[in-house]
Amino acid sequence: MSAGIWVLVEHSDGEIRKVTLEALGLGRTLAAQQGGEVVAVVLAQDTGQYMGKLSAFGADRVLACQDPSLKIYSCDSYAHTLARLARDRKPKAILFGATAQGKDLAGRLSAKLEAPLLADVTHLAFQDGKFVARRPMNAGKVVAMVESIGDSPVIASIRPKAFPMPTPIDGRTAAIDNVAFDAPEAGLGTVVKEILKAAGGALDVTEADVVVAGGRGLKGPEHFRLLEELADALHGAVGTSRPAVDAGWRDHSTQVGQTGKVVSPKLYIAVGISGAIQHLVGITGAKTVIAINKDPEAPIFKRADYGIVGDLFEVVPAITAAIKKA
């Protein structure tokens, strides 16, 4: 029996993504609301390595699908296998991280199963026989309460860092169901040839606890080094405002805002960013914002918790040096 709440395990290089663990925690809450097990579904070349962590973080059962072809994520293989398992075992819900992989897969699976997709949710509950979610729209300019209609499994992608990280319990053990892998009959339409890692294995802005972001005030790409040093000292990631990306200073993958990423770090340090509405909507989830800007009238100060009016080329290196000394 493996109805209940499923969590698709996202992993790379033997590491489980944090958002998967957050989804397991959410799974436990949902299972308490509507009964059933929390089931982790893992597709990998070697599934065994993940069992301990999945058990400790809340899985009652693991559906383990192991195959050499699953060395690298494939939307075709994953969607095909998940659809088959879901048709057989009828879960109440299937949770994904709202990550590049989760979004890729959830949209396809939703059509395959004709199942509701609650996309990029920041709250999810089971109430009166329905799943009810909260999800930001227009990049967070408004927040929608949405509900699923119908009986098919509900698919939800959850925003990284929107749900609490569960406390692992040592010694918890999950039941393991090994499930067969069968490739899609039509063959694979897409094949991942290679994964090019971002320089320095950079932490993604959506997953970092601290984001240090720079804008036009940096005056040129070479000065982002100052932000990298501050981010390093705080174990954080470097983000960028749209004008700095449009100027070609930084890669779009680091852009925060309406046409970039929406971030929810504990601390967001905005450096030389004026604070256009398209940027501010990307940081509504940030717990604390520190703004450093030479213009005391910059709109970013209206959103910030702490403000420093000053020359970023003096202030930022001085803070970095002070942290390193501390």
Binding site: A115, P116, M145, V146, I149, F301, R303, Y306, G307, I308
Partner: peptide
């Protein structure tokens, strides 16, 4: 539809305003 929008609201606005860190560098 498989998903219904029940209600829209505005995000919570941060209360309290900004605290400026003054003084010399």
């Amino acid at each position: 539809a498989t998903v219904k929008v029940c209600k829209l609201s505005y995000p919570e606005v941060k209360q309290g305003g900004v605290r400026m860190i003054e003084g010399d560098l």
